[in-house]
Amino acid sequence: MTTTLQKDLASHLLACEENVQDTVKVTKEMAPDLTIEEAYLVQEQLVQMKLDKGLTIVGPKMGLTSKAKLTQMNVDEPIYGYVFSNMVHDNKSEVSMKELIHPKVEAEIAFELGEDIEGPGVPAADVMRATAAFIPAVEIIDSRYKNFEFTLPDVIADNASSSKVVFGERVPNQQDLELDLLGATITINDEVKAGGAGAAVLGHPANAIAMLVNMLAKKGEKLKKGQIILSGQLLKPS
């Protein structure tokens, strides 16, 4: 796959994001044979374009971390994308629907790292040790693909559907936190609409971060101190 095509795909997806415009999946015509590895190369181009615009990375985020999602997409590994500074909205602020194509809301635990973590071979316990704080987060995903119709390479190229994030109050890491048993609920207009527990994320949210570290290690990258990383969706719709 040529760098030109990678850049073309990245530009196309970035334009869709900026113009709040949906598109048919890139594997439909633009790149029918796109592999997962190539899709991450497209994502890298997209990330670079955002960096060139002066945006900064808040941290990576994990996607497809639930068993149901993995089964639905017929894969055994989750995916990742990147959250940028301009995606973060203040807690309790308003988000304009004009900036979104077809938003969906997820509840997640974010990990704020107190140290760098570098794979491969990082166990979840190392992630817990290196974490300075946990932050409750609402992630608003907004695939650029029409009707959320995409294959795995499509969604990877599309920065894992990243769109907006709202962080709550940070909770300093304590040793006795049982993140797998941590309950989460989403209420919409005061009515409980969905709920779940930390274990919905690959058994334990730290498992997702450990997997991310080890995936990044394949590209010679690491997680950095100060990054805030979304570990994956906690909820099952009710």
């Binding site: 068993k67 941590l182 609920t185 409980v192 527990a197 274990a199 919905a200």
Partner: peptide, 22 residues
């Protein structure tokens, strides 16, 4: 009780997660 998280295992594998508010 409404914010208590729950994990259900069958033969060591997670088969359900939830929270009191459900």
């Amino acid at each position: 009780a409404k914010s208590v998280g729950m994990v259900l295992y069958k033969n060591g594998e997670i088969v359900g997660t939830g929270v009191g508010a459900l």
